[in-house]
Computed example of a mutant assay.
Amino acid sequence: MTVIRAVTHNTGAVAQAILTYANHPGLKELRLAVTRAYRYDEDVPEGNSNNLLQNSPILQAVAVFDLPYTVNNSIAVVIDSPGLSMQRDARAGEVKHLTSDLLKLNLAPGKLT
């Protein structure tokens, strides 16, 4: 499988990339991963900075496609811009809006994990 990384420069582009890939006819699977949210200093694992308090939870996505007429017909696109990684009220709203939009797509069972 070939793996490439999406180039996004802001949170709107990250959300748009995920939705665009979710709508692609060759989509085999869209995997969303969200880390734990750290709210208090005592929650941060020992040896880590308090950046986890400011930047969690982190949303990442991997879109896997089956492409015809290619040698290894699977390709994965990693969408992990730090733009959607920061937990701020506006970004939390973007993540909620994105997940709502993804659910509205009614993707086939097993495509959204």
Rank of each mutant, 00 (worst) to 15 (best):
R5V: 09
V7M: 02
T11N: 12
G12D: 14
G12E: 12
V14Y: 12
Q16C: 00
Q16H: 07
A17P: 01
I18S: 03
Y21K: 05
Y21S: 09
A22R: 00
H24R: 03
G26D: 15
L27R: 11
K28M: 10
K28H: 15
L30A: 04
A33W: 07
A33C: 10
T35L: 01
R36H: 14
Y38L: 02
R39E: 10
Y40E: 15
Y40M: 13
E42M: 07
V44P: 09
P45L: 00
N48S: 09
N48A: 06
N50K: 12
N51H: 12
L52C: 03
L52E: 06
L53G: 07
L53T: 04
L53M: 07
P57L: 03
Q60V: 13
A61E: 02
V62M: 07
V62F: 02
D66P: 00
D66W: 09
L67M: 14
Y69F: 15
A76Q: 09
A76F: 00
I79H: 01
D80V: 00
P82D: 12
P82C: 04
G83L: 04
G83K: 02
A90K: 11
V95C: 06
V95D: 02
H97V: 08
S100L: 08
S100V: 03
S100A: 12
D101W: 00
L103K: 08
L103V: 14
L105Y: 02
N106I: 01
N106G: 08
N106M: 06
L107C: 10
A108G: 05
G110V: 00
L112F: 05
